[in-house]
Design a protein around this nucleic acid. Structure first.
Lengths: 267, 267
DNA sequence: CGGTTGTTTGAATCCGTTCAATACCTGTGG
DNA sequence: CCACAGGTATTGAACGGATTCAAACAACCG
């Protein structure tokens, strides 16, 4: 199951709004061996299906080999377990190899908010660079595996490889842009528009990974979706039902089929 | 007027939540000459009051001199004018030398949302790195001046100066964290809590720049505040009135005096 | 000074929440 | 295999916080 997620063509998609989408030819990796041990030696980066995310396109074979040597031990995280917690010392960033995560920020009064969902091929942990410690919890939504990228060593590499340096800046900047558009969603959109936007965004990301854009399986609960979109789980459910009645989507529990994407976008 | 803003001790404060606050000894710069011409040669970075923001603390005199040679032409922007617009090609990031800005993202349907306010000593333009073009408009709230930092040249410097490289990563990461906490605000807080949080945040930032934490002048309208906090201008106004009645703040148009900061935080 | 822009306040309305009841899964253990 | 439990999802009705609409006022600027 982990393997099927990986045997696909990927493209960089951390930046929801980035216009630069690279179509990378990627060598499918073998099924992830024993996802229950952590950490373990990964497949080499140079043959990883996620390469289009982790690395810029223009690297030479020699440069790729350098990366292989330094980064990409993997770690598997069981459903519900945390990859890191707010307050943990920051050492590494992560690329999701398989599965999916949510990032959760917590207010002192106990109130919590989901700041993002990350699926295979997306980055995690960039929040930790600034303060030297993570500012949120990263929790697996299903049994998942990540690639561990020690940041100090990455910095060294970035000083020597210009494309790599630029790539890290791009990843961080794209995350800033993604969050800006999420702020716009939270600040200006109705519940209906938020849910529609959420579904279309997920659809686009799945499509970019070679999965169906029309039909997919939600890994998160209604409550988690609500917490991400700034509304209660009941409201999320009502919006799904509404879209169902209007023949825009076909929502059956966690299985979603987008019937009329244009209609959804027009909401 | 520009000069008074600059003749202050500053500390790095891009990261709202960053625990690392450096107290920097800073040489006051002379009054900014003719702020009406753009662009113009700036005071040298090595004597700039904003140095604590633009640069890491550990730079040698020689390294500072290198920066002087390359970055820090300035540009002045009149109230209401844009520093850059969404879609503009990205070439530089900016440090606010004097005055203040808002950044605005626009949805295709015309709806707009204020993603942040930037005051003296804060950075602008980091959103542009990812896609090679800016993703929002940056608009001056008053006659302002920025320091122009060409990003391509900054990247070169960062490959040679480790502290500088790390500093840029920190700035971007801190912006990610700041936006996360703004998402939490938009997603989970009541109108009352949002306005209270907004005032306390501004207060903290002014204080860090040597201004009064208790009394300050808002540069933005109620509408802009509302657009930032995800509510209507009338609601912002009502909250100010409410805080007034409860003796938490003394709001007189754009002049704000925080009477009971603890009370505000408890809201 | 008049006109424009920004602010305050009230009353009616509406969208999303809250509370509550019911139904639906999914995995576990008898 | 079925029954059961616990979490998850759906739906209805009442409520409430924020918006909308409207009017009056204040501040600012040419």
């Amino acid at each position: 199951m982990l393997a099927t997620d990986l045997d696909r063509d990927l493209d960089t998609d951390v930046a929801a709004t980035s216009p630069t989408v690279r179509a990378a030819t990627v060598i499918p990796i073998h099924p992830v061996a024993r996802a229950d041990k952590t950490p373990q030696r990964a497949s080499r980066c140079s043959t990883c299906a996620m390469r289009a995310l982790c690395m810029p396109a223009e690297l030479s074979a020699a440069e790729l080999a350098r990366l292989d040597a330094i980064i990409c031990a993997t770690r598997s995280v069981k459903r519900g377990d945390t990859l890191y917690r707010a307050g943990d010392a920051f050492h590494s960033i992560y690329a999701v190899r398989a599965g999916s995560f949510k990032t959760v920020v917590m207010h002192r009064d106990g109130r919590e908010h989901v700041t993002g969902f990350q699926i295979a091929g997306e980055a995690l942990g960039l929040d930790g660079v600034g303060a030297g410690q993570h500012s949120c919890d990263a929790i697996a939504l299903e049994d998942s595996a990540v690639c561990i990228i020690p940041f100090a060593q990455l910095e060294v590499i970035c000083r020597e490889m210009k494309p790599m340096q630029h790539h890290i800046y791009q990843m961080m900047s794209s995350e800033i842009v993604r969050e800006s558009s999420q702020m716009m969603l939270l600040g200006t959109m109705s519940a209906e528009q938020r849910v529609a936007t959420f579904l279309l965004n997920l659809s686009r990301r799945f499509k970019a990974r070679g999965f169906s854009a029309a039909e997919f399986h939600l890994r998160m609960t209604r409550e988690e979706i609500g917490c991400y979109l700034g509304m209660k789980l009941e409201t999320v459910s009502r919006m799904f039902s509404k879209f169902q009645r209007e023949r825009l989507v076909d929502a059956n529990g966690k299985t979603i089929r987008i019937v009329d994407a244009e209609g959804l976008a027009r909401v």
